[in-house]
């Protein structure tokens, strides 16, 4: 077993080792059209690479959930209400819930979220070659790893 993503094989593994998996990571993607469409796609790529990296590092203790998507044109309160619903479902199975996003709107609502919000400003990766991209994502993820392990140690 090397991964725990939202695909049938991994979910089967998850169900077998459920008692060891107490953490879930949910990417939050704001979707925009028109002028901000490109920016919204860049943010999604950045968060996807990061969450994939986190998932690979901590397979066995965490599962990567499908992204929570919402329309940027709607007020953030609407997305927040929907995310509460997700949270209520997730908290039954997971002790630690992490939300990862590069949408700064969530920072204003951080106090209202029950999980841990990790906000990172998106970095456009378009102009980089693969090894630069890899190094950047790797550096950023190393910092995220400690956020997760600290939470785990805290709860011991």
């Amino acid at each position: 077993m090397h991964e725990m993503k939202w695909i049938p094989e991994d979910i089967e593994t998850y169900l077998n080792v459920k008692e060891y998996v107490d953490t879930v990571v949910v990417p939050l993607y704001g979707i925009s059209m028109d002028k901000e469409m490109k920016q919204s796609a860049e943010a999604a790529e950045f968060i996807t690479l990061l969450t994939t990296r986190i998932e690979r590092q901590f397979t066995g203790r965490l599962i990567l959930f499908p992204p929570f998507t919402y329309l940027k044109k709607d007020p953030i309160e609407k997305a927040l209400a929907d995310l509460f619903e997700w949270h209520n479902v997730l908290k039954a199975d997971f002790k630690h819930i992490f939300y990862l996003t590069s949408d700064s709107d969530w920072r204003l609502k951080e106090d209202m979220l029950q999980g841990t919000l990790i906000w990172l400003p998106s970095i456009p990766l378009k102009s980089m070659n693969d090894s630069q991209k890899f190094e950047l994502i790797d550096n950023q993820s190393q910092q995220l790893f400690s956020i997760l392990t600290d939470k785990w140690i805290e709860s011991e």
Binding site: M1, T59, G60
Partner: peptide, 9 residues
């Protein structure tokens, strides 16, 4: 680096 328990790093 793959842990033989459940596959962490």
């Amino acid at each position: 680096p793959i842990c033989k328990h459940l596959g962490c790093t």
